[in-house]
Write a protein that binds this DNA or RNA. Structure first.
Lengths: 135, 135
DNA sequence: CGGAATCCTTGGGGATACTG
DNA sequence: CAGTATCCCCAAGGATTCCG
């Protein structure tokens, strides 16, 4: 073990347990990571984090997503229980999306990662320019 | 704002600042998320978390990665300063990879996410089977 | 308004073979 | 051992059109 940090060491151990106990293809962690890395999921989660939105309202706030991917991503999030969909039977019909409790519980751990990304950016940029210059 | 949780609220706010201040395409957070969601990066990081490895040693521990992707992912990680590469001039040559300090600093925030994934799995699975049954 | 259906392009990534 | 070089395939996702 290389870490003075016991918290990191604990996470590594838990990771090893989790990944070794499941078959390579069906690892449940992978499914979560796929959503994180997926182009739109987390953007939608963080957008909905500040309150419920209607379909076209989301589309206006995120102009560069296609309707197809907006629909698809929302359905996947709903399927996983992170987002709730509520239909109001008005004319014309309106549909509201909001984070579930489960969805809200993702904000903090995800936020830690964003925090890391922001504070590590300078170091990454420096490493990258050094690498590109000398390799 | 929908959150009783002030920590979550703070992360949402920071997210909004970070994403609104950069142009859609070049958002630095996206680059990090791409690495997280990328098929092999985090697997390699977590593998190297328990100690330095040689090239083929990594390949043996992660049999389902291709040499191409192993090389490519390691180079990207090295470029971003997360992994250090050390060449020993022996015969035959041997190359060792290890996490940098920056790379190690990713373990904890990433671990929180894994923790969330593990503890949320039952809820996600339940939501999904419910969704698949009734939709 | 809130989608569904279809077509089409791009690049991530696997398989294989070769090299210092 | 530690890679590099090619070829190839498939699925994620964009653009467009249609519908209740």
């Amino acid at each position: 073990m290389q870490h003075a940090d016991p918290i990191a060491a604990a996470y590594v151990e838990r990771w090893n347990e989790a990944t070794s106990s499941s078959t390579p293809g069906t690892c449940p962690i992978r499914h979560v990571l796929d959503k994180i890395g997926d182009k739109w999921s987390m953007l939608l989660v963080m957008t909905l984090a500040s309150g419920p939105r209607r379909f076209n309202q989301l589309h206006r706030e995120i102009p560069d997503i296609s309707q197809k991917m907006l629909t698809q991503t929302l359905r996947d999030l709903q399927r996983d229980g992170l987002v709730a969909r509520q239909v109001f039977d008005t004319k014309p019909p309106s549909v509201e999306y909001r984070l579930t409790t489960l969805g809200q519980s993702l904000i903090v751990p995800f936020g830690r990662l964003i925090e890391w990304a922001n504070s590590s950016m300078p170091g990454i940029a420096a490493a990258r320019s050094h690498f590109d210059a000398f390799s």
